[in-house]
Amino acid sequence: MSEGRGALKLLLKNRLTLAGAAVVLALALVALAAPWLAPNPAQALGRPDMGNQFRPPGPGNWLGTDDLGRDLLSRIIYGTRISLHMGTLVILLAMAIGVPLGAIAGYAGGVADEVVMRLTDVFLGFPPLLLALAVASLLGPGLANALVAIAITWWPWYTRLVRAQVLSLRETAFVEAARSLGAGHGRIVFRHLLPNSLSPVIVQASMDVGYAILTAAALSFIGLGAQPPAPEWGLMVATGRKYFMQYWWYATFPGLAVFVTVLAFNLFGDGLRDVLDPRTRRQ
């Protein structure tokens, strides 16, 4: 208990971590309140306003308008929804694949362990973005496919994490006790081992959301993610880039949104890691 309180204190003391947490929270609120915050929700969702294209930032359109005359601020606000949605779903899917495999490998050991671990070797043998790109291009464009593509590159990390946890817990007294009381393998894994190894996984997951958002934006930038007229940030940078030298705001602001969001998640995650990893903890 005292250790937990110490960690919390540490977390609060670190201003960067705190700032990251605050921005993440703010983004979540923006996503929830998008219809009320966005000056023009209809345009955010795609309705063109021809004759009004490429208005520079100014009163009325604080971040300017895009190539179809739509208010960029509104679209970026709605884009928060897509990005947070993607970030969380990717990590959830990666966990859904990775955690059970890790538990099986750690608990069963032997051949199962060997097979699962070599499988993770294969997937981690790619540079991460490359595999996501290859998979997404072969699956075809669309947010759902991009989601699958990124999750496919990310699950092995959870497998390794959970396996290590399960290995360290397998021989502990309470597992022994459960076993001696006649609990089956399934019960031991799902009632005892997994719940006790989940906390580091959850911490890791919260740190990975930033990565997932960044990768999703990169895929959309290439045209493999969101489809028009979705207000996805990466897609907006890609379209804005075509007009970039003349209308700088179109690609600049959605890119900034990606950067700030990912930065916030990473600052928050980095602070968490410092707190939870005793080796780098302040003496």
Binding site: L16, G210, L214, A217, A218, F221, G234, V237, R241, F244, A251, T252, G255, L256, V258, F259, V262, L263, F265, N266, L267, D270
Partner: peptide, 13 residues
């Protein structure tokens, strides 16, 4: 941290 958070395609632009 800003380095790993940076969309490189955007920084290049």
């Amino acid at each position: 941290i800003s380095g790993v958070s940076m969309p490189l395609f955007w920084l290049g632009l």
